[in-house]
Nucleic acid binder design. Structure first.
Lengths: 358, 358
DNA sequence: TATATTTTCGTGTTCGCACACGTAGAATTT
DNA sequence: AAATTCTACGTGTGCGAACACGAAAATATA
């Protein structure tokens, strides 16, 4: 591994000159520049990222803004864990990550947290743009201040975010359609359950449903899709009543598709006897969802490596900050198909935490 | 982030003393040691891994030994790419990775390459233990020289390897069984094709078949499983003749399971008209296999993130070398279910190569 | 008490890179 | 010809940790 010093010696100049060429900071005559560049190429010099990181004194601040999580709302735990893990790793590179969370059902909370956050004048921001209208306002402010921003998990279009990390919702829904088709006999009815509790990032859910439906139409498969909306998932008794009576009435329903991470809640509303001939497909590997898989209550979960989403975002943003390297604009997460049999091999948040690998 | 210098100032000692305490190298009086330890804990000091890496002069050599790849044999390309990518990253940490490959059909090649490799007295070795007998010999030598070793992709039991990174073959086969069950109507016959060309790491393949069969027996599903062996996959015409005549004769065959990465070769042997009502399931996301998926010739591929296997092994071994950190003994790769619809989102070898992220 | 031996600790250098600062000599202006 | 920029480069310092060397302090031995 050749160093700047070595190059300098070879070119008969000082290290400073080589450095100037490397960062084309000017002040080098054309011929020495050419000579140095040749030597660099010949020995294919690469910076020692370690030394570089050590010597950079600039400290960067990176702020994240995503929904919080609690018992009933576990999805956002994973991205946060990924972010935290990556934060440890990039700290030594002079990047300080600070996390803000908001109530995902309150646009005002989203906006308020942002307003607090922005006071610290961050060098970059990573947000889960849960509400469209408020995101516009936020982005406006960011662009005014010339602060680069990236989107996590939710892929809003029409913004100048430098990066999106998350799943292609349409494709994920399409895969769900295929799995549903595989699980259900022909001519079945399929129930698609939306929960208005998520009117917020409605966009992703409707894309999933669009993909789901398209699978059947594009492949010319005849099914009867029944849409069901619940305004309030908190009132589980009410939900259960409606759901069970519908299932009793429509015996042709063989599949239930829940395009959100809340399938475990739905499962708990359905009477045991009705579950027997039902194939349920949902999203996301939250703990209760995984439990449903393992107890044979859910056939498939579509997952998206949320931990990795958080983890990778931070690393890519760090690269952007310390190397001025613009990332690929969209990083699509895998569309993982989880079953009872493979779910335990899918993710390992914990082991990643034990090993503070490089 | 508190530094050694800071701690030294707080304790009224020099940096050297703090360093001695940190590495308990002795030569520090009990009371100063106690004082320093208290300060370390109070400000919860953590080493700056960057600075540490820079100052460590020890160079470690890490050797890998895995099968080579060519057009007909693509599987081992991915782990190698992962290894190469990780090698770049750990180089700055003073770990030099050198790769040796062998002909996966020649035990002698395996052994010979090892014998060349071992002459360099590596600090650690990562091998894909393709042949059991020869592996015993190799391990013997390694243990005599006190060189730690890890297994990549193939999980041989009864050895003192510090690490295994790869898939649980039994579980992967079990998942394949489930998918086959989903795809085929009840009472079908299912063809399981083994290729003796792989008698070598036969172990993994037989585990996959065991898992596959167990899925049906444990779930009380009646199928008729037909086993077929081909001694020589090179003579494709011969293979095609046998295969096609069997398929023509046994109309009940609705599924074909190939527990190796060679399903694309099998696909190319089957006559188009016979493909129609056939569900094929194979292993590994090699380029030809992916093509088969996309052309609707194969229903599912079970994959195992081979790139990541290589990538992670190197990082874990590096941790082991430079931090004396013994990794978790077995790192199981995900059992990815690939379909036409989700395959493009599954892996991104290339993008990982573009971004030389930290 | 004087000398020898440990124990305990400070100093200085090194790793590779980034960057502020300084300066010799060339080029230009007056 | 003197005074002034400019150009092109060298020097020095710092980042945080590791470690070798050796000095001072503490203890042991005579």
């Amino acid at each position: 591994m050749i160093t700047i010093k070595d190059v300098a010696k070879l070119a008969n100049v000082s290290e400073g000159t080589v450095d100037r060429v490397l960062h084309n900071r000017g002040g080098v005559s054309l011929k020495t520049e050419k000579l140095i560049k040749e030597i660099l190429k010949k020995h294919n010099y690469t910076v020692n990222p370690i030394a570089r990181a050590l010597s950079i004194k600039n400290k960067f601040s990176l702020y994240t803004l995503m929904p919080n999580h609690d018992k009933t709302n576990l999805f956002w735990k994973s991205p946060l864990l990924g972010v935290l893990k990556a934060s440890q790793e990039v700290r030594a590179y002079g990047v300080e990550v600070t996390n803000y969370t908001f109530d995902q059902f309150k646009p005002s909370s989203y906006l308020n947290e942002f307003k607090t956050l922005i006071k610290s004048k961050p060098h970059a921001v990573l947000i889960a743009p849960t509400f469209i209208k408020e995101t516009k306002e936020i982005v406006n402010e960011l662009e005014k201040l010339d602060i680069p921003y990236a989107f996590l998990n939710i892929d809003l279009e029409g913004f100048k975010n430098i990066l999106f990390v998350g799943q292609n919702s349409y494709a994920a829904g399409y895969v769900a359609g295929k799995l549903m088709h595989l699980s259900c006999p022909d001519q079945s009815s399929i129930l698609v359950i939306q929960t208005r509790i998520n009117i917020n990032n409605y966009y992703a859910f409707s894309k999933r449903i669009e993909g789901f439906n398209d699978y059947f139409t594009k492949n010319d498969i005849k099914v009867n899709i029944i849409n069901l909306n619940f305004d309030n998932l908190k009132d589980l008794k009410e939900v259960g009543k409606n759901l069970n009576s519908l299932l009793k009435k429509e015996k042709s329903i063989k599949g239930v598709f829940v395009p959100s991470s809340r399938i475990s809640i739905i499962v708990n509303c359905i009477d045991e006897p009705l579950m027997n001939n039902l194939n349920l497909i949902g999203f996301d590997n939250t703990e209760p969802n995984i439990k449903c898989l393992q107890e044979n209550k859910v056939s498939f979960l579509i997952s998206q490596k949320p931990f990795d989403q958080g983890y990778e975002s931070i690393h890519l943003m760090t690269d952007f900050l310390i190397k001025n390297k613009t990332p690929i604009k969209k990083i699509y997460s895998p569309i993982d198909i989880l079953t009872k049999e493979n779910v335990i091999y899918n993710e390992r948040d914990k082991s990643m935490f034990e090993s503070d690998s490089i």
